[in-house]
Design a protein around this nucleic acid. Structure first.
Lengths: 256, 256
DNA sequence: AAATAAATCGAGCGTTCGTTCTATTTATGT
DNA sequence: ACATAAATAGAACGAACGCTCGATTTATTT
């Protein structure tokens, strides 16, 4: 897998799995450290899906992957992945069919790449939260990181949720497992806090599930809470509002 | 709109809008009074979509609509509405293309009928809750009725959520509005309880939203909470468990 | 039992889909 | 400047799609 013009990427998730131990307290801070963004995100896709991609030079592949995926989110966000034809995609990206088919082997490859990125992002979320010291700050950091990642990658998370059924069976159960893992993770943390007397006794499974569906709601229905925040300051504000809403709800239920 | 063999139906929602004032406390009880079930459900569709349906005799139309919609849920539940071909549908229902196209004018009509039923069901939910006397029992009855209706009509609710994008724009915003109305309704009830001193002061919008996404979770991911409950008693149990989980969570947050 | 109406059948229509393929253009290396 | 390799263009292909329609079967009426 030698690259002529190797861009920095996240081919191996473990490369970024152990960043310096730190608490995240703002979206801006998150953006500086998160590897799956901008050019690097597509370079990662190029590395991880090298066997599917005909295009050899990273320069072209990265630029075209970015065009293809952005166009996919724009078109399929309105009417779904199945209704998006590759001719739509060709028009929207300004690329020819040939150019598109040098970046992907089949239409389904696009969905596979999205699923891969969301899975990578979920891994990073889990790994980040594990660094926190107290049980409560593990919960806090999980929520924060998830909100941040799913804001930055909102179209990716959204796409995977709605188009999972377009994926092969194995990928389907994998992305279902991501959700179950997230619930289980919160449940374990809550139960640990209850066991140590730090939290009031509650239905841990229900609360864990509630947190996860609220996190899902954030990227599935941004029109409900995020509206048209476009300045970075405004966006920071909206995320923090939602973060505070969730954590207040949770902490009220867990207060001893 | 004269019918040769008129079955009982819910062509006009107001016909069933004012049943005797009563609290619902079990799924079994709900089932006895809810009009959108069994043969009546399809008779309602037949009445309300008469102009689309070529088939004239209710006997045939009702039987075929039932076959078509059940097959639609089975097939599109796996791979989505767009991927379900009418040849799939023909095989699954045992009907010919011609027979199918005497019940619908276009494939999209199937989705329109589903959207219509869910909207009817949501209307009934809202109307039922309005009958409750206290603010708290309005909230309780809203949750109960919604859980009951979305259990009975799970495939319909599920389908509308995932296939809204296959609908014309107007229907899309209508089904988005259903959710917003539900949130607003809970919000108003919570705020009323806070104003009267009945409830502790909380973020009413957030709590209302939380309730609604938890209700959505019930029919979107039945595998998480409903598993394979097949006996009526077991099902009653599972619904009640989830109902108790939601109301406990809510009442803890609202306790003065 | 004959006559009429309704429902069903399924081959076939035109279209559009995902995908392929070759000619051409553009970039790279010497 | 030339040679070579890579990337792009877009016409063309077969398959599958939604949908139609005349022929046929089934049900109802007289």
């Amino acid at each position: 897998m030698t690259k002529l013009a190797p861009l920095s990427s996240v081919a191996d998730i473990d490369q970024v799995a152990h960043p310096p131990r730190q608490e995240l307290n703002s979206y801006a801070e998150f953006l500086t450290g998160f590897p799956l963004k901008g050019e690097k995100l597509y370079a990662t896709l190029f590395d991880r899906h090298a066997e599917r991609i005909q295009t050899q030079k990273a320069k072209y592949a990265v630029a075209n992957l970015e065009k293809i995926l952005n166009a996919t989110f724009e078109v399929s966000g309105v009417s779904g992945f199945d209704r998006m034809s590759l001719r739509d995609l060709s028009k929207r990206t300004g690329m020819s069919m040939g150019a598109i088919y040098s970046c992907i082997r089949k239409k389904e490859d696009i969905a596979l790449m999205v699923a891969d990125v969301v899975r990578l992002s979920s891994d990073l979320t889990r790994r980040h939260a594990m660094q926190a010291e107290s049980v409560w700050s593990q919960i806090e950091q999980s929520i924060r990181f998830h909100l941040y990642a799913s804001t930055l990658l909102q179209p990716w998370y959204f796409f995977l949720f709605f188009e999972t059924r377009s994926l092969p069976e194995q990928q389907q159960s994998e992305s279902k497992q991501i959700e179950l893992d997230a619930i289980e993770s919160f449940k374990v943390q809550i139960e640990a806090g209850i066991a140590s007397g730090e939290f009031h006794s509650v239905d841990a499974a229900m609360l864990a599930n509630t947190i996860v569906v609220l996190l899902e709601d954030w990227y599935l229905k941004p029109w409900k809470t995020q509206l048209l925040a476009r300045s970075p300051a405004e966006q920071e504000q909206r995320i923090d509002n939602y973060y505070q809403s969730i954590t207040k709800l949770v902490s009220k239920l867990l207060a001893v």
